[in-house]
């Protein structure tokens, strides 16, 4: 048997020969899942379950952030572009966020990472209309203060994310962080005591 024969034989026995390639959507999700993980948490670190579950409310991957009337943050998201042009309200300032629908795995949130958020606020949901959630901020921890914040889904996002029964409820208060054009999904959600204490600790 020559080396070539041996190689041919081995190639025939390649267990990955029939492996179908991933869809581009799955690849996008894989990349987004990865990039939504904070880079300072070491792998295999188990997160406290309650916080994980609650902080992960905003199960959203990338989000492009537009600040109207308060400047414009650069957009670096993967595969997402701003859903709409900057809208300037003559009478009130608005922070506009668009949210994708890919699922995210959250590592244990840390104060150090949250502290890097360029925009962070506490706000109460005023309306949920046509996939757009309008929040009235009660406090900005970081970033330019605006009168309202609008959160809109991008194409393909699940309806469950916005306006679903267990997501954004009118009258409920949420904590939302965004950084470099991205909503920090793992650091945003309903203002549970756990998330609140993380924000208190950070800001």
């Amino acid at each position: 048997m020559t080396d070539d024969d041996l190689e041919a034989l081995l190639r025939q026995a390649d267990p990955a020969a029939d492996l179908a390639p991933l869809t581009s959507l799955r690849i996008t999700h894989l990349l987004e899942d990865t990039m939504s993980t904070d880079i300072q948490t070491t792998p295999h670190t188990p997160a406290p379950a309650p916080r994980r579950a609650r902080v992960g409310l905003l199960v959203a991957a990338s989000a492009a952030l537009l600040l109207a009337g308060a400047g414009y943050l650069s957009l670096g998201g993967f595969g997402h572009s701003p859903a709409s042009a900057t809208k300037h309200d003559q009478t009130a300032t608005v922070t506009q966020l668009t949210v994708g629908g890919a699922a995210v795995k959250c590592a244990a949130p840390t104060s150090e990472v949250l502290a890097t958020a360029q925009v962070a606020f506490e706000g109460t949901v005023r309306t949920v209309d046509g996939g757009v959630v309008t929040l009235v901020p009660s406090k900005f921890f970081a970033g330019p203060t605006t009168d309202t914040v609008k959160l809109a889904q991008t194409d393909g996002a699940s309806d469950v994310l916005l306006g679903g029964s267990n997501t954004f409820k009118i009258g409920s208060t949420y904590l939302v962080a965004a950084n470099d054009g991205q909503v920090q999904a793992c650091y945003s959600g309903e203002a549970t005591p756990e998330l609140q204490s993380l924000y208190d600790e950070t800001f």
Binding site: I27, L31, T34, M35, I39, S74, G76, F78, D180, G181
Partner: peptide, 19 residues
């Protein structure tokens, strides 16, 4: 490396590595 640069670099490298 800024977060934007990190994302751009990862997006340039990672897709070709996945398969």
């Amino acid at each position: 490396m800024s977060p934007d640069h990190r994302r751009a670099k990862f997006e340039a490298i990672a897709p070709a590595l996945i398969e």
